[in-house]
């Protein structure tokens, strides 16, 4: 049996949780969460941790030079820097609106990169 302390990042409450795993890595128990999201977070964090990646992409011909972007859904934690590598090379043309798909599949994750801000054309 092994115990791991986790802090839930599901919401700003930041519940402190304790997860118990057996020798095979199976999750035996999760304690300390105050809602089901905490339980789900802990299970995912122990087996396949994921994150939303947020950054900016260069804009051409816009009122602003950069537009903020995010991965539409979580991507595996291990893929964060692969995502950043692709984001760094991107440039998009204005206008751009919240929700516009910048890249349909980032770093082979199957997750789209979408704009989170608006940039009007110059």
């Amino acid at each position: 049996m092994s115990k791991r302390q986790l802090i839930c990042i599901g919401c700003p409450l930041g519940c402190q949780m304790e997860a118990e795993q057996n020798e095979d890595g199976e999750i035996v128990s999760i304690k300390g969460n105050t809602c089901p999201r905490g339980d789900a977070y802990a299970r995912k964090e122990l087996t396949c941790p994921t994150r939303i990646v947020t950054s900016t992409v260069r804009v051409e011909g816009g009122m602003r030079h950069m537009v903020s972007v995010k991965t539409k859904e979580d991507v595996p934690k291990g893929k964060i820097f692969d995502c950043m590598g692709e984001i760094r090379k991107l440039a998009v043309a204005a206008p751009i609106a919240v929700g516009d798909v910048i890249l349909p599949d980032i770093a082979g994750t199957g997750v789209a990169l979408v704009a989170t801000g608006n940039v009007d054309a110059r």
Partner: peptide, 8 residues
Amino acid sequence: TGGRKEAA
């Protein structure tokens, strides 16, 4: 120390 992303 750095500019507008590499593509720039």
